[in-house]
Amino acid sequence: MSNDKISVSTATRMEDASYSRKILAAKIFRITICVILCIISLFPFYLMIINATRYTKDIETGISFIPSGFFIQNWNTLMEKSAGLGTSLWGAILNSAIITFPGTILTLYFSTMTAYGFFAYNFKGRKFLWAFIMAVMMVPGQVTIVGFLRFMQTLGLYDNFLALIIPAIAAPTVVFFMRQYMTGAFSLEIVEAARIDGANEFRIFNTIALPLMKPAIATQAIFAFIASWNNLFTPNMLLASPDKATLPMFVQQMRTEQFTIDYGAIYIGLFITILPLIIVYLFLSKYIVAGVALGGVKD
């Protein structure tokens, strides 16, 4: 027995040295892979920024990692060419903002409200209605688009931003997330207490429940905003007027033949379109990364 013990401990000691070498080797290997992945994630954006500063003819001759001096000229070309698109770059950003901001606010307010309705009240059909929300959660908007398009034409909401804003009130995934969050972080006793103080139900929701939900709202706000800001399919189907193009629709036009010959302008256009998102991301990445794990938002 004692022999065994000794041999085990020497073995452990010997292993220790090789073990820590192994750990080090593993560490170096893993870090290398991770660094490569980071480079792959950022490289296209880097290339885009570099090319935004290069002369179109130079871009065509090959790859470069050093910026050149054509940023301003490319910018001018972009402005000149995008002038023919019906919506200017700034117009497109404005249109996107007009749709995205109210849409996001509606999504958050009404989703929290709906979740609260399911959470705080016991009413007939509650289980069934909740099951309904769960069931429709995964139904993508794309499959209803033909009916939606024609229905909007009937309603006279075709080519109208409202057709893109109002539906934001009903966002099943956000409702689902909000209720999950409430279950974990919200106590009905506070509501009871407020009722004793004589507050009416909507006041309780607005002044007590909403503030308590801030962390969840913040996370969902980011995702709802990004999803709406980046949406191409629905606006593309629903908007007709040339001056109503959203930012992704503006981007889409850079794929048309007016731009194909001017890479410098394309790169700078892409750069401008993604810049707001990169800035938002830089400031909120902590919450975004944390929020992904929380909600599993994916559509």
């Binding site: 570099i50 935004a52 500063t53 002369y55 050093i66 910026p67 050149s68 001096g69 940023f71 301003i72």
Partner: peptide, 15 residues
């Protein structure tokens, strides 16, 4: 990347 880009801008105005 941005700074390098901007710096590049002023370098090559002539070109």
């Amino acid at each position: 990347a941005l700074i390098v880009a901007a710096a590049g801008c002023s370098n090559n105005e002539k070109k």
